[in-house]
């Protein structure tokens, strides 16, 4: 690990040299994006369920 870091000095960083060169940073972006989209969608469904219950209780009162 240390030698790798030393090796990377002077050129681009280790990530620009390896990940970006192979273009596979998009894989990470896709994974993170999926997680983010999933969580946001989850939030929207919670919101929807909440609205439903709110309507029901306000009708009852």
């Amino acid at each position: 690990m240390i030698t790798m870091q030393l090796f990377a000095q002077g050129q681009g960083s280790a990530i620009t040299d390896s990940l970006y060169a192979s273009g596979k940073i998009y894989v990470v972006v896709a994974v993170v994006l999926l997680i983010l989209l999933g969580l946001l969608l989850f939030l929207f469904t919670i919101e929807k369920r909440l609205k439903k219950i709110e309507k029901k209780t306000s009708a009852k009162i």
């Binding site: 681009g12 960083s13 620009t16 972006v29 994006l33 983010l36 989209l37 946001l40 929207f44």
Partner: peptide, 25 residues
Amino acid sequence: GAVLVIYSTIAGFLIKTPDLPIIRE
């Protein structure tokens, strides 16, 4: 909010940044 967060995540990974010592990427 959702759109901005999604945009900033994609752009945050892909847009070029200044290459500073130590912090790098």
